[in-house]
């Protein structure tokens, strides 16, 4: 991109292609006569929940003070206790002097609540974060084992990596849940995190191994020649240099993990994908919900990419 004046035809071409694809999609949808119901979507992010305020004891309402939108209700209970509520003025069910019995409704309050999409997103995020953490530890240990001098360690690591990389994640999740989960009586969350961690750990191990091997041999020789032992050399010299190089593929792996975590919805963990499926069964807004779910994944992954990009620039100071 050296000559700006020469890039504009390509920008136009890009725009034309994108608009063309959008138009074609639009046309296809118009053909099947789909009823868009976007208005149904926002409530699955946030919704206003009404809650009835009920008195827990018998008593008499002493005062009802209106202060605009809300009202304060005070009740003198039979046992001498004084109880107080804040309810919305429009929803008041009581007047001053009224006798109340336990369980009677005083009025209503409403609160903003997180909808299933937000809960799903939260589940996806923490599942991915926890799995990433374990995958990183597992991958680091396995990666180190892959380059170790000990044959048994190398062999174990190789078997693990090959088994995981040679089988589909979906099958691994099934094995974790229906086999291991049953045998060891594990919860679905443990099975899901376990499967995701084992899966990502194998890929992290390969990234770590490649990273370690990419550090010039002279670096560890220089370190060893100063009397530093194997662990100090790994920790102070090799890993920091390897880390800079493995950061891009590593972050790519973790971003993949966020997307791959959608597969745990098959063992009934209510992540973002499962939340989407549940909403569709009650709204039939299939297209809208899947588009929104995709956009939420995209938002998270691109935010993460930005963070990684920033970190890479920070780490490149010494080059």
């Amino acid at each position: 991109m050296n000559a700006t004046e020469k890039t504009w035809p390509w920008v136009v071409l890009l725009a034309v292609i994108l608009i063309g694809v959008s138009a074609a999609t639009w046309g296809a949808i118009a053909k099947i006569d789909y009823q868009w119901r976007w208005y149904r979507v926002p409530q699955y992010f946030f919704y206003l929940a009404e809650e009835a305020e009920k008195t827990p004891a018998d008593g008499r309402v002493t005062t009802v003070v209106r202060n605009g939108k809300n009202s304060t209700v005070t009740l003198a209970a039979e046992n001498g206790e004084k109880l107080q509520w804040q309810v919305e003025s429009g929803s008041l069910r009581v007047a001053e002097g009224e006798e109340m019995f336990a369980g009677d409704t005083i009025g209503f309050t409403s609160h903003w609540r997180l909808g299933p999409l937000m809960y799903g997103l939260w589940t996806t995020l923490w599942l991915s974060a926890v799995s990433s953490f374990f995958a990183l530890i597992l991958g680091l240990i396995t990666g180190l084992a892959r380059v170790s001098k000990n044959f048994t360690l190398r062999g174990l690591a190789a078997v693990y990596v090959e088994c995981i990389r040679g089988t589909p994640l979906l099958v691994q999740i099934f094995i974790a849940y229906f086999f291991l989960g049953t045998v060891f009586n594990l919860s679905r969350n443990v099975c899901g995190i376990g499967a995701l961690s084992l899966f990502a750990g194998a890929y992290v191990a390969e990234i770590v191994r490649a990273g370690i091997q990419s550090v010039a041999k002279g670096q560890s020789e220089a370190s060893r020649s100063l009397g530093m032992n194997v662990f100090q050399t790994m920790w102070d010299i090799v890993l920091p240099q390897a880390f800079k190089r493995i950061l891009p593929p590593l972050s790519g792996q973790f971003i993949s993990l966020i997307k791959d975590s959608s597969l745990v919805s098959v063992i009934a963990i209510t992540d973002l994908t499962k939340a989407g499926r549940e909403i569709i069964t009650s709204t039939f807004a299939t297209f809208e919900v899947w588009l929104v779910v995709a956009a939420m994944y995209l938002l998270v992954t691109s935010l993460l990419s930005q963070v990684v990009y920033y970190m890479e620039r920070r780490f490149s100071i010494s080059d």
Partner: peptide, 10 residues
Amino acid sequence: FQQFNLFPHK
């Protein structure tokens, strides 16, 4: 060493 082998990240 011939190639110095200084630690580039330090």
